[in-house]
């Protein structure tokens, strides 16, 4: 659990972060989003004291972060950054084992943990353990970066645009994996990004920042439905908001039970988003879709009218 209480950061005469208060609950994935220079990275780096805050208090599990030695504090938190920062002269396995080694775990336990993490992140041990970072693709390097951040099993994970430099397909894959990983590990994650689609896809709590202040925070759907002002609205995509909201809602939410009519020819998975369903309708010129379960068996249907109409009544 992380609490920021009236935190301010000044660099000389400029105020980078201006009196923000934020509380991230245990197991919550909190995304800080905003334009460049809005203070989101500074906020993140104050949590592990790479930047010292000027005013206010930051607490981890109720304890002030200044009560810890810097190194002790940082070893308790995972840290992943956009440039990965993998050590080029160390193998993948050694890079991942960095924090456990700093914490003086026994060798055997480190090896076991490294192999466990490589498997968890889809990096076959036999293939990758002895490779050097320069031999990895961008996506693989970032997986290693995330594995390294998770190595000592920290409760807190700080991620600074970790997927920002990846191509869109790899980025989306890693976003999905992070969500899946979070579903199993329940870490407290603070994630910084300027990509609103990424933010909406990942966040349990979305925090919109501008000029060092928090403009609005809450569940992504709350922000989409009731943006606090024009800035938040434009950042959330303006007229595109309808699609962004549809992307967050699963088909099962609007699905109707199977009717006695003939099954519609086009199908959509029950866990697909409404946005995907809409796209299929547009592409296939269909007003009705059959919703199928994991085994590809029909379990319901979704009409265009239902897809858009139900929303209008809300």
């Amino acid at each position: 659990m992380i609490d920021l209480i009236h935190v301010t950061k000044r660099f000389g005469a400029t105020t980078a972060v201006d009196d923000i208060s934020l509380s991230v609950a245990q197991g919550e994935l909190c995304v800080l989003v905003g334009t460049s220079g809005c203070g989101k990275s500074t906020t993140l780096r104050m949590i592990n004291r790479l930047i010292e805050h000027s005013d206010g208090e930051i607490h981890i599990d109720g304890q002030q972060i200044r009560a810890f030695r810097e190194e002790t504090l940082r070893r308790r938190m995972g840290y992943a950054i956009q440039s990965t920062g993998l050590f080029p002269h160390w193998t993948v396995a050694r890079n991942i084992g960095l924090v456990p080694r700093l914490l003086k775990w026994p060798q055997a336990r480190i090896r076991e943990r490294v192999e466990e993490l490589m498997t968890l992140l889809g990096l076959p041990v036999s293939e990758f353990a002895d490779k050097y970072p320069r031999q990895l693709s961008g996506g693989q390097a970032q997986r290693v970066g995330v594995a390294r951040a998770l190595a000592a099993d920290p409760d807190i994970l700080l991620m600074d645009e970790p997927f920002g430099a990846l191509d869109p397909i790899t980025r989306e894959t890693l976003q999905e994996e992070l969500r899946a990983l979070q579903g199993r590990l329940h870490k407290t994650i603070v994630f910084v990004t300027h990509d609103m689609d990424e933010a909406l896809r990942l966040a349990d709590r979305l925090v919109v920042m501008d000029q060092g202040r928090i403009k609005q925070q809450g569940h992504p759907l709350e922000l989409l439905r009731e943006p606090a002002d024009a800035f938040v609205e434009s950042l959330l995509g303006g007229e595109d908001r309808g699609l962004k909201e549809a992307a967050l809602l699963p088909v099962s939410e609007r699905m109707l039970p199977l009717s006695p009519r003939l099954l519609a020819r086009e199908r959509v998975a029950h866990d697909a988003s409404l946005r995907e369903a809409l796209s299929i309708m547009l592409w296939r010129h269909a007003e009705r879709l059959t919703v199928v379960d994991d085994e590809d068996l029909p379990i319901g249907e979704l009409s265009l009218r239902r897809l858009v109409g139900a929303k209008a009544h809300e």
């Binding site: 070893r75 440039s83 920062g85 050590f87 700093l102």
Partner: peptide, 18 residues
Amino acid sequence: IDPGVREAARGMGMTGGQ
């Protein structure tokens, strides 16, 4: 040295000597 490497090293909790 790539500044990202130094940033990561500090962020992971390495001391100055390490």
